[in-house]
Design a binder for these strands. Structure first.
Lengths: 332, 332
DNA sequence: CAGCTGACGGAAATCGATTACCGTGATGCA
DNA sequence: TGCATCACGGTAATCGATTTCCGTCAGCTG
């Protein structure tokens, strides 16, 4: 069925070597022969077999990526941004999901390595139990981990500067007139929640003296509602509630508005991540936008650097996120 | 660096043929030799080269998929469900995005074909201009299109039964006491909006006599708000507003509650798709859930049927979606 | 004019598996 | 016993490109 490079070479009256060189433009080929090869390829409707090329050249032009899941909008956006970056470099994306199971994650990584991907991007699914899989990967191909930071790894890392984000939020609500704060977050089961909590404690203390109450639960609407209810039932409501992510903040907002508390007049509320619904909430939520495109560009840059054999490239990049001001905080 | 099957065969004291057969379990190998091969592979830390296997066997165990974008939650869920299905069959997913550009879509499909994917799944990005690319694909490998239906194509198709969904919604609000209806949808630029509109007209007429007003705009919150405002300013408000999708319904809900109209007491509101935020709206939105996992299973079944050489397999499947009843409609 | 260099073409090796084909010894059956 | 069949092993071809290695020829130099 399909024409091979032999057919093309025969039709052009040259050797396969010349045909190959002509089509990939690796070495000089006389313009006359070049034309004939191109013409022959077109006439035969030649479709190069990337599998054969990959076997010989030991390069698949394919990047593997393993994420916990795709239906999470944050991950989906990361995948999309990375795929687009790769497209520009004529590479393809081989995608796997771990469903937050480290064993599945390991199997997926192994499958991608068997397929000889040129490099690997992972969003690890577990702080400790993902380490060995990433370790394995990084001995085989250039590897970058996204978002979650693992202990003692040897691969590259790109993530968000949680500290910078929290600091921006706090400075913003203080500028809006807040004198007392509270933090509603998640128990530090991963590096992000840990960092956001630490940053809050540090920044609140530095900027505001002793920081207010810290309530820790999980990243759900329900927890946000419950935490807000606790604050409402407590002694005195803080001027601003800083939340560990947007989902929590939506729950907080809902509990407050149901109890007739005005946002931002009585209490300012902030989130983190800028998920799609942040903009649709009532009132729209001030939050920190994850710089996904920026992170994707950084990841791909890091990998292509390594693939083109850079001697020593950057190993860790924390991208500074952006404050998105909406109606849930005071405007000045 | 890596051990090849030759090394494994040598260490096990057998030929490469026996090693290959033993590892892939294709043909009988004496248990004794089988053990020795497995032991040798383990000792050498043998990692099979899937690229070489693919070249010879003409099978990559890889499925290509091209979607308009991944950050759209509906597409993300489809990709996730399909990836999971493929995982079970030991296949991998090579993913490309078209960003709603038919030229990009064509390039992506071509790239996937060059990589010799075993089959192709597309969510076409344009009703007319995607046809040629899909056509091309389906002459090369088994192909299934999802969601959008193209004219006169020769590949398989899996989608949602929009008609069944709309009928369920209408029967539900009528059962809840509605005597008059309105439809807020999008101009029929794709087959889904067309079908939903047609179904509404048919079903409303059949079930309710002459149907109420039909307002067409686009799939946005803003349009939902505007349409609701128009209805509010009109002569008399219908008992139920059927929306073409959830986004529109959210806009409708917002406009109604801002004007003090009670949902569902004064007006019932329904959506379509069951996006994540439907559950979080005030009140939570009654809607039609896209049966994504079911559709994914259907797609993969269709492809594996064809790959295992079924003589004649199903070509078109419309999956019936599920009605999700929440507080935006009357409970009885 | 001898010798060197550089540009280019071609033959053949190569990547690492699968598989077609053949050979051999054991077994079943009449 | 004679012969067909079966189970299994090995040799070598094969998939379709890239790449190494070498040869040729033109042009340039001194």
């Amino acid at each position: 069925m399909g024409a091979t490079i032999h057919d093309v070479a025969a039709r052009a009256g040259v050797s396969v070597a010349t045909a190959s060189r002509s089509l990939s433009g690796k070495r000089g080929v006389r313009p006359e022969n070049h034309e004939r090869v191109l013409a022959a390829a077109r006439e035969l409707n030649y479709e190069p077999n990337a599998v054969a090329a990959a076997l010989r050249s030991r390069t698949t032009h394919t990047i593997g990526m393993v994420v916990p899941r795709i239906s999470n909008p944050f991950f989906a956006t990361m995948v999309e941004a990375i795929e687009q970056q790769l497209q520009e470099g004529q590479r393809s994306l081989l995608l796997g999901t771990s469903h937050y199971d480290p064993d599945v994650e390991l199997r997926q990584i192994q499958a991608l390595l068997d397929r000889r991907v040129d490099a690997l991007i992972t969003i690890p699914c577990h702080r400790e139990r993902s380490a060995s899989a990433t370790q394995l990967a990084s001995t085989r191909v250039p590897t970058v981990q996204l978002d979650l930071r693992l202990e003692g790894n040897v691969s590259g890392w790109v993530g968000v500067d949680n500290d910078a984000g929290i600091v921006q939020v706090i400075e913003h609500v203080l500028a809006g007139g807040a004198r007392s704060l509270a933090f509603v977050g998640a128990s530090p089961s991963d590096s992000s929640s840990q960092e956001r909590l630490d940053s809050y404690r540090r920044a609140a203390t530095r900027l505001d003296g002793p920081h207010g109450p810290v309530l820790l639960g999980d990243f759900t609407i329900e927890w946000g509602q419950e935490a807000a209810t606790r604050l409402l039932d407590g002694d005195d409501l803080p001027d601003a509630i800083v939340c560990g992510n947007d989902t929590i903040a939506l729950g907080v907002l809902r509990a407050l508005t149901r109890r007739g508390v005005r946002v931002p007049d009585d209490v300012q509320v902030t989130g983190f991540d800028d998920i799609a619904y942040a903009e649709l909430a009532e009132p729209p939520l001030t939050t920190i936008r994850q710089p996904q495109r920026h992170m994707a560009a950084e990841v791909v840059r890091m990998l292509t650097d390594q693939l083109s054999g850079a001697t020593e490239s950057t190993r860790r990049v924390a991208v500074v996120p952006e404050l998105i001001v909406r109606a849930s905080t005071a405007s000045e």
